[in-house]
Write a protein that binds this DNA or RNA. Structure first.
Lengths: 344, 344
DNA sequence: TTGAAAGCGCTACCAA
DNA sequence: TTGGTAGCGCTTTCAA
């Protein structure tokens, strides 16, 4: 195949001529608008079918003032959560009558800004920014150009609409779960300065305090990687006088690294150590890993993002909104009731 | 921020008026084309800057016959390899003077066809299909509409340009590596009917035969998932009379599941069992997992894909090309020399 | 219910 | 080197 397209794609003028009507009538009929008599409409539709007519969306967009493109910029498309949010958002945008213009190689702030400039040049009505640009000044700058909603960070200090998971609650959920299982020595491997890490840590701390476990608070610095998790495991399980019976990791990859290293050391999970992660990546849900974790809903994030975008577009001067999407605890096999024998 | 854009974006007519020249001259100056006198150009550029002019790309595309959009359709954007290919390809397309229109929610064949229809309506010059549509008839149909290059499958029987990794060589590379380490009982966990699985299996078989190990050929049916790997491990390590000292898995996830299960059973990797995967996902390269594997190069696949697209566009009637990108062995810690003591 | 005509913002061609 | 004039393919008044 890979055949060249028909010499010249049919235009509205072609089908108008073919059907013996004016271009304007043809336009109305094709779009199903206005009042067109049934037989005329039929004739026009037949002509369109005969000539394999496909409206030129570029021309349509130029002609109709607000034809409606929505820009979507993704910082880390290799990150499955961002990828899924972007994917769902582009479907939702379509459902709102926009076509999504998606930029997936905005992996530096320079490229993100350039991508948004290009989107603006395409006259998008607004931009849904998923993890990019990253630095706050760049975010603020870009948001001064065009209506924008940022998904994936809270952006407390930047005056930009944002949508993100309620990570404080997520942290609390994780700790509550472990406490309910009877654990008391619950450590936290955090995510350093990564997005959300601070709030997850806060949730951990608050929940521990609420349970009267402030003396058991142990925070190990980590990152959102499997290697950081393994490193944290070595640090954590080396402490002679205080051995946790459970760990809340700030990220699933961290949790997986932690579990892997624990197994290597000879500890069993959850026999000797219960582990809860964060994100609920695909891997976490496999039968093999079966990681208890805090689920971030890509669907909720995407729909909240699109809803915020629609609200902003409808009311450009409304107050800035900071939306928090609730996370959900997924109980799987990596966390189990505390058994006294397991304590070191 | 999130401020509304300036009442009406400046147009070429605006800056022409502002600079006291004609629109055509302004157009030439802005694009840096034609012969415009330095001072006039300067005046025009200043006007453009003053009015914060951004050319309307939609209008430009409509006006210039072949303004050049390239469509990119991605089937599984959550798959990091596809995501990365798409990302690199959109950069390369830009370098070729096209702007990429990316569709990331083509996760069913219906949606893929619809997405491609929409891209065609945007008058893209061609479509780079990354893993979508999936079924051969759909692929053939879509390719009859527009110049198309398919990335990620060989498509032997469909007459569509395609680019994929040379998986037969990949399989051979894996086996050669294990044989060089002294292994003889080398099993293969395949990927069933998944893309590339058949050729990886062929490579395994051929290499085993070439090494005179046809009696040691063992193929376990698997899939590209971690759970399939774990399942295969149970099947494989249960055989009483034949225990492999090494396994070549058709996919990294399969390999990871396999290793995980082996560790649970109490085997050490690579002490008791060497494992080689396929793909070189990010996880494989971590210090913690350190999985020996066959690397598929997203960069090579993307650039071969774009090159094939350019060739097809330049010469619509050229013969269909089936490009194979060479894979590369990544030696890491999951594979080690065979030690006699390890044999069961 | 239908059609004529005027744009959307740009490029392209041709004459000055 | 410059400007005038036609479109690109569509939507959108406004009349008929």
């Amino acid at each position: 195949m890979t055949k060249k397209p028909p010499q010249r794609p049919a235009t509205l003028a072609d089908i108008a001529r073919h059907a013996g009507v004016s271009r304007s009538l043809a336009s109305l009929a094709i779009r199903g608008e206005g009042a067109v008599s049934p037989e005329t409409r039929k004739r026009i539709m037949e002509a369109a079918a005969a000539l394999d007519y496909r409206p030129n969306l570029v021309a349509r967009s130029l002609a109709s003032a607000e034809a409606g493109y929505l820009g979507i910029v993704v910082g880390e498309i290799e990150n499955p959560l961002q990828a899924e949010i972007a994917k769902l958002a582009s479907g939702l945008a379509r459902a709102e009558g926009y076509s999504a213009l998606v930029s997936i190689d905005a992996d530096t702030d320079e490229k993100a800004e350039e991508a948004i400039r290009t989107l603006i040049a395409h006259r998008v009505s607004g931009v849904l920014a998923i993890g990019a640009p990253f630095e706050k000044p760049a975010i603020a700058r870009v948001a001064s150009w065009i209506p924008m909603v940022y998904v994936g960070r809270l952006l407390k200090v930047v005056a930009v609409d944002s949508v993100t998971t309620d990570d404080v609650t997520g942290g609390i959920l994780a700790v509550d779960h472990l406490v309910a299982l009877g654990h008391r020595r619950i450590a936290h491997v955090d995510g350093g300065a990564s997005p959300g890490a601070e709030r997850r840590r806060d949730g951990y701390r608050r929940a521990m305090e609420r349970h009267g476990l402030e003396r058991q608070i142990r925070i190990i610095e980590g990152a959102y990687t499997i290697d950081a998790g393994a490193r944290a495991a070595r640090a954590l399980l080396a402490e002679p006088d205080w051995r946790p019976s459970a760990v809340f990791a700030s990220n699933d990859m961290t949790a997986i690294g932690l579990i892997n290293e624990a197994m290597r050391i000879g500890l069993s999970v959850p026999g000797d150590l219960s582990v809860v992660g964060y994100d609920d990546v695909t891997l976490a849900g496999t039968e093999t890993l079966s990681l208890s974790t805090i689920h971030q809903s890509a669907g909720d994030l995407a729909s909240a993002g699109i809803a915020a975008m629609m609200a902003r577009l409808a009311e450009p001067d409304a107050a800035v909104s900071k939306i928090l999407v609730p996370p959900r605890l997924m109980t799987r096999r990596s966390s189990a009731p505390f058994s006294a024998t397991a304590a070191a």
